[in-house]
Structures are given as structure tokens and as C-alpha cells.
Amino acid sequence: MTATAAVSLRGVSAAHGATQGRPIDLDVDPGARVWISGPSGVGKTSLLYVIGALTRAVRGTVTIGGSTVGSARDADVVRRHHVGFVLQDAQLVEHWSVRRNLATMAGEDRYPAAAERLSSWGVDVEGRQPRSLSGGERQRVVTAGALAKGAAVIVADEPTSSLDESARDSVIAAFLEASRAGAAVVVSSHDSAWAGWATQHVRLGGPDA
């Protein structure tokens, strides 16, 4: 692990995919932008979940924010204090309002910034329930919440899969802004639009995996 790494993997294998046979070493410094690519089924999401302490590595050492993820308790602390999440299914609590979902993800004190970002993306929050949102709107709500949290590490799984080109470009620009503010951002995506954004590329299932 480098002295400044926000995330460090050493000999890590995730539960599924290419890293089972080819363990990975990876350092992600603050401000770095990592794009994980590869064909379907190669384990992009599995690796991303390990990086975000959502699941445990099958083998190897994972260090996030200076803390080694060696137990379920370690993982819980890391998730709450160091990581923001944008998951592919854009999970929201259906019986909560959109506002409550967003405030819970971002933190109540950061809610205004998250709501302002969503408004700039054309998504109204106040008075709405999750059932009224389209798939793309849900994705943007989760993204705005993760960005506003101010976490040191942001992990995102196919964060633009439900977006048109204009909305996609706005989200990519927002992740660029987060990295410039010091966050380490790790994105798993099939979309080659992330290639020009990334400072590091991890391709799974290929010769440089």
C-alpha cells in the first residue's frame, strides 16, 4: 500500500469472476479515477463490491481509508465512514419519500447540496415518492446522494446505464468534480465513455486483467 492510497488490494480474489484465478493488486490514491471494464460475467461487480467493503474478499488483503477490512464489523465501519455507493439497481426505500432517501444517503446537513444537484439534472425531489421516479431518475437520486456524502471513496456500478447521452455526460462530469475534490472514484461499466475520464483502467478477462 502506498502512503497515500485510499484503497489498497493485495492478492485479492472476489467471490466470482476473473480474479478467482488471477488475484489482483491495486492501489487507488485520493483523486484517482478507476474504470473497471470487461465482458459480462467476468466479475466487475464482484470486484467493485470488495473495493467498497460490501462483500469480503475470498483471499487477500483489503485496506480502505487506512483500515484493513478483516471482519464484518470492520466492513460496517468502513462503509459508514469512508465509502459512498451508487449501485446498479438504484435501491431506494420505497415507503420513504425521495427527500428522506436522499437525506439519509447524503446526511441531513448535506441534503441541500444533493437536492440542488438533482435539480440541475432536471429531477425534482420535494413531495415525490420513489414509485413516481423513472429508472434514470432513480439512478440520479442515488448518484447525487453518494456524491453529497463527501466520502473518501466512491464506488459506482454501471451508474449511467439508464441515462441518455446528455444525462450520462452530466454524471461523468460530476464524478470528475468529486475526484478533483479528493475522492477516489471507482466505476464499473461496459460504457466506453468512461475511458477518457479514467486515470486508471482495470480490464478483467483480458491480457492486462
Rank of each mutant, 00 (worst) to 15 (best):
A114P: 02
P130K: 01
E137T: 08
N101S: 10
V153A: 11
G136Q: 02
G145V: 07
G127V: 06
G135K: 05
A114F: 03
P159Y: 11
K149I: 04
A146Y: 09
D109A: 14
V153E: 09
A167H: 12
D164L: 11
D169G: 07
E94K: 11
E108N: 04
D164K: 03
R168P: 10
R117L: 15
R99C: 00
S119Q: 13
G127A: 08
L147K: 05
H95D: 13
R110Y: 00
D157M: 08
S97G: 13
V155G: 12
S166C: 11
G122H: 01
S162P: 00
D169H: 13
L102Q: 06
P112T: 03
G136I: 04
V142E: 10
R99M: 02
S170L: 14
D157C: 09
S97V: 08
T143D: 02
V142M: 13
P130W: 00
L163T: 05
E165C: 01
V123F: 03
R168T: 15
R117P: 04
V141E: 03
D124R: 15
A106S: 15
E108F: 03
R110P: 04
T143P: 03
E116G: 13
E108G: 08
V98M: 03
S162G: 00
P130M: 07
A115W: 09
A148I: 11
R131Y: 14
V123R: 07
S119M: 01
A115C: 05
S120G: 12
S120T: 14
A152F: 05
A115H: 00
D157H: 11
A103W: 01
K149F: 04
G127M: 07
E94Y: 03
V155C: 09
A146E: 04
S132R: 15
D169E: 15
R128I: 09
P130N: 02
G145E: 09
E158M: 13
A152V: 08
D169N: 15
V141K: 03
S161I: 12
